[in-house]
Design a protein around this nucleic acid. Sequence first.
DNA 1: CATGAATGAGACTTCATTCAT
DNA 2: AATGAATGAAGTCTCATTCAT
Lengths: 229, 229, 229, 229
Amino acid sequence: MARITGSNGGRTAEAIRRAAIRLIHRQGFAAMNLRELAAEVGIQPGSLYNHIETKQGLLFELMREHMQDLLSAMEAALAAAPDEPMAQLRAFLAQHVLYHLERKQEVYIANFELRALEPANAEPILAMRREYEDRLIGLLEAGARAGELQVADARIAAYALLAMLTGVCTWYRPGGRLGPEEIVAQHLELALSGVSGAGLGQRAPDISAGGSAPIERMRSIPAGGRTPG
Amino acid sequence: MARITGSNGGRTAEAIRRAAIRLIHRQGFAAMNLRELAAEVGIQPGSLYNHIETKQGLLFELMREHMQDLLSAMEAALAAAPDEPMAQLRAFLAQHVLYHLERKQEVYIANFELRALEPANAEPILAMRREYEDRLIGLLEAGARAGELQVADARIAAYALLAMLTGVCTWYRPGGRLGPEEIVAQHLELALSGVSGAGLGQRAPDISAGGSAPIERMRSIPAGGRTPG
Amino acid sequence: MARITGSNGGRTAEAIRRAAIRLIHRQGFAAMNLRELAAEVGIQPGSLYNHIETKQGLLFELMREHMQDLLSAMEAALAAAPDEPMAQLRAFLAQHVLYHLERKQEVYIANFELRALEPANAEPILAMRREYEDRLIGLLEAGARAGELQVADARIAAYALLAMLTGVCTWYRPGGRLGPEEIVAQHLELALSGVSGAGLGQRAPDISAGGSAPIERMRSIPAGGRTPG
Amino acid sequence: MARITGSNGGRTAEAIRRAAIRLIHRQGFAAMNLRELAAEVGIQPGSLYNHIETKQGLLFELMREHMQDLLSAMEAALAAAPDEPMAQLRAFLAQHVLYHLERKQEVYIANFELRALEPANAEPILAMRREYEDRLIGLLEAGARAGELQVADARIAAYALLAMLTGVCTWYRPGGRLGPEEIVAQHLELALSGVSGAGLGQRAPDISAGGSAPIERMRSIPAGGRTPG
DNA sequence: CATGAATGAGACTTCATTCAT
DNA sequence: AATGAATGAAGTCTCATTCAT
């Protein structure tokens, strides 16, 4: 596709990373082949090896960078929020949704290609993932201790929330009907108050009576997983 | 692994389906190869073709059967519940979680291997999936019209709920600390009332103060993509 | 080259072995490629893998079979000879030359492709090779103890003799001027009595005065190759 | 291994030659790759081409230099010896063994990588090799004519002697139990008188009765081929 | 219904070599 | 004289699939 002629040096490496993210997201790591990746970048398959170690190594690098960025973004968000349980929780959830809207392909890959990592490579990625989850669990427990949250089981609640919020990756498309802020707001409400809506606050007006006000239909794989962009 | 030697006749076909579900779930469709599948069943690769049409055809069959079962289960659950919005919604959500607990491998495959289907095969599967989603959207809208739900956007809410509830596939293991009923109950609460817990009803006692009461940590691949990052 | 059409089953495996011996002998293991090998056999490259495990595995099998045959032939020769030092020594040397005339390609491979074996594969081959050498060393020592041989160092002498006798592989071609028996006889003389010819016995008449009576010139690999197995 | 960083100028060319000899000897020409060679020298693969023409050209150069040196050494040895058949023969054989002890890697390459030379490059090398062999054949014939040698066939005898004496390359290691002079002496005896020891002269005392007085066992690939140094 | 062997395409990766900088 | 990136060919091996037995 996009032939980047004259691409030299460091540009090629970046082009490979970007094309790889696109292709892995679209087809899955196992189904992506290096011929295709090279063609996207505009070089010969063998030339990839000036920039990557192996196909497996490429996946690992992509996932590592992604997890580091995610952790950094999360820490920054928490640092910027008031130091009290509910504010911290809201900050965590909001940044999670935002990050997932902005980098949904990387997110998708990080979620679904863990099984494609060799055990030695999976280990550090899993460690970072646990660090992220444990942060949320800690916030939920703090909120519960403060009497501001009702969580029967913090771990289950954390997993459920993350699954819900991560779900936006499966249908969001930039430039769609809803802007990021609105999507973030609605998910915060759902996370905190559920659909029954005994919410805590600034709830958006209920527009459901007027029809489902559809976002684009999920073309492919709604929840969990599937699709791409 | 489990070599079923001497498996003859009709049993072979069933053994193939089961092994395929296991392998696709574990490795993904593209990464599964028919050598491996045949070995699991205890036959030679060529012999698979007495029972399947192609690798692609096998995937399609598995997904079609799964979607039919899911739709049947959902219809049966709704038929068995009182015909009023909240009861119907609870019935839908509860059966969804239950079904996902019981058949998490098929669910996973159905969610994440859609991209592996050839377009002609994807179409009927997508149609069934839409039928399922639309049922939930309808219930949410009915609840909103009846004034019992607060949903800003029924479609977004439906996707978010499905993502959350489908997430159980990624960590649930039969025989774990929590039984299916409890998991269903907690997720119903989260879906209806969120973590802030301004719930509507039979809420389980808050045990979070006593620590996170952990389920087993997701050991491998949270799968489906759960959260992560 | 020689396309063996309709070659099925067991015949293919044998054809592969033979072609591999020919090609490895001609080009070396590293320089032989499986495309070429497959073409010689008349099948597709991938089809080789119905009969071999890997390229490396093929080499190992060839060498193992060769060494086993060599050891068997040696033991048989010794068993058939009178049980006294010089007769045993003569039997060993004669069978060595004969075996090397008849299977010079395998011998060559066994000598020169040891370095191409992975360490784990080299080990058992080396063990067999030592067994063979030690037999000769033992015979030389026995002859010396009996006062029938003059060897300053049995190991050095053994290596030197094996190198000399193995050398026939480098120039011998069936159907040449000299028959196997004559070649064996001359080498026995050289081994036992050297060129100065203070021999022990049935020495062939000296024909060197009449010109060098050339065998074919060594086309490829002259001396170099020392001993075999 | 030995990275010679900052190797500049003319030194690089020499470093390449030395590293190439080491690598070709260890692995064979086909199995050696230029990446590895460059790494040994401490430069990038592309930089090799400032010093060599091609991989093939490098091999040819190494072999040509070696053969020229060998021929020179032989001529010098003959010139320094008394001009009578047996003295000339002894001089030839002694210098052959000595040269092979001192430059066994080059010798090995010259013997076994002839097949890796393109025909056009092989031709001049083969011519030099024939020149060397013919010298020995001439000496054997002269000795026979003088009645001092018993050779049934001078060419066969020459090949057998060269094979035997060249064999030292396969097990000799500098600093081992036996010094070069002793190795030369023993091989002269074996060449002239064989193991039966009806020798002509200054024979070393027979020490074989006291056990085999072993040199180090050939650790790796004794013979023919394999190993390096 | 199972097998064993074959196919043909294609996968990842290596490698000698070139060339602008 | 060295570098880093590119090439293009080729190498080993895998895989879905076919088919005679």
